[in-house]
């Protein structure tokens, strides 16, 4: 299978940079599989899991939003945070999930707080999900 460059960057590090065969990302509008010579495209990403196919094997990682830019030379994913399943701190994610749920149930907060808590909850659930599959 023909390969192309994929680069994933987060504010804290360069998460991934290598030649790969395929990457599947979760866009706002649904999952998106990217192969070589994809048409140039920019789209925001949802909190979710990305799958990278390299040398016939799939790797998974949890990412927290961001966007993907597909250009001729390479595909770049820019995200707030990205983790391999092995790097995820399950306890921390569980705690974050609990905290977020409590905040949502209180209902005393403003809309924006609820929105934030929901985002935090989704991030936590995503982490738990991705880590659990490993």
């Amino acid at each position: 299978m023909s390969k192309f460059m994929l680069e994933i960057v987060t504010p804290d590090r360069k998460f991934f940079e290598d030649e790969i065969e395929m990457v599947i990302v979760r866009g706002r509008e649904g999952d998106l599989g990217i192969l070589r010579d994809h048409t140039p495209l920019v789209t925001p990403l949802d909190i979710g899991r990305i799958k990278i196919k390299q040398n016939g094997e799939f790797k998974e990682a949890a990412i927290a939003g961001g966007y993907v830019e597909i250009a001729k030379e390479k595909t770049t994913i820019i995200t707030d945070s990205a983790e391999w399943p092995g790097e995820i701190d399950i306890n921390r994610a569980q705690e974050a999930k609990k905290r977020a749920e409590e905040r949502i149930h209180k209902k005393t907060h403003s809309e924006i707080d609820i929105f934030r808590a929901e985002m935090a909850l989704r991030k936590a659930l995503n982490r738990i999900n991705v880590a659990g599959r490993d």
Binding site: T39, P40, L41, V42, P44, K72
Partner: peptide, 24 residues
Amino acid sequence: TTLIDYEPSPEEVLGYLIPKYVQS
């Protein structure tokens, strides 16, 4: 000259990207 596709729409993508750019 390359045309870039924007999903769902250019306006929405820019509305997301530019605040992101400002933050970064």
